[in-house]
Amino acid sequence: MDLQPLIQTMPAQAFWFGALSAASLPLGAALGILWKRPSARAISAIMAFGAGSLLAALALELVAPALERGGYTPLAIGAVAGGCSFFCWIGPSTSTAASGASGPPSSATWSAPSAHG
């Protein structure tokens, strides 16, 4: 029996791509259950991978339509302006944290003011 035409149909491809993407949830849950105390380096690597994946997905989804609608110059200006504003916003907090100086409050050391004054 030849399965090649069955695998190449659009519904079959949608099923297999959906199954592949859905497999990440139980695999991640199993990893979280089995791996009791991951090192700080492992956690950092996993978070960096996730952040990079989200940035790549965002870039792939937004760059092509922006290029079609506005052209290269507005896209480049927006990318540079966004990068500079992000650097100015996040840069001081990471450099002060590394040097031990006081910087903006982090979620670990700052709590919101109470409603009762």
Rank of each mutant, 00 (worst) to 15 (best):
A14D: 04
P104L: 14
V63Q: 01
E68I: 11
T96C: 11
W35Y: 10
T109R: 03
P104Q: 06
T109W: 01
P11L: 14
L34K: 01
L62C: 05
G52N: 00
G50E: 03
V63E: 03
I77D: 07
W89S: 07
G70A: 14
E61C: 08
S111A: 11
Q4F: 10
Q13P: 00
V80C: 15
Q4K: 08
M47L: 12
P38I: 15
A45G: 05
S44I: 10
P38D: 06
A81Q: 06
P5G: 10
R37F: 07
T109D: 09
A19N: 01
P5S: 08
G78C: 13
G83C: 10
G70T: 09
L54Q: 04
P74S: 08
S114N: 12
D2L: 09
T109K: 01
P38A: 11
P5A: 12
I90Y: 01
G100Q: 06
I33C: 00
A30L: 06
Q4D: 02
I77W: 12
G70C: 05
Y72M: 11
P92L: 00
W110N: 03
A19L: 14
S93T: 13
A51Q: 01
S102W: 04
T9F: 09
A112Q: 11
L67K: 05
F49E: 02
Q4A: 13
L25F: 02
S102Q: 09
S24R: 01
A23R: 00
S44L: 15
A59L: 14
W35D: 08
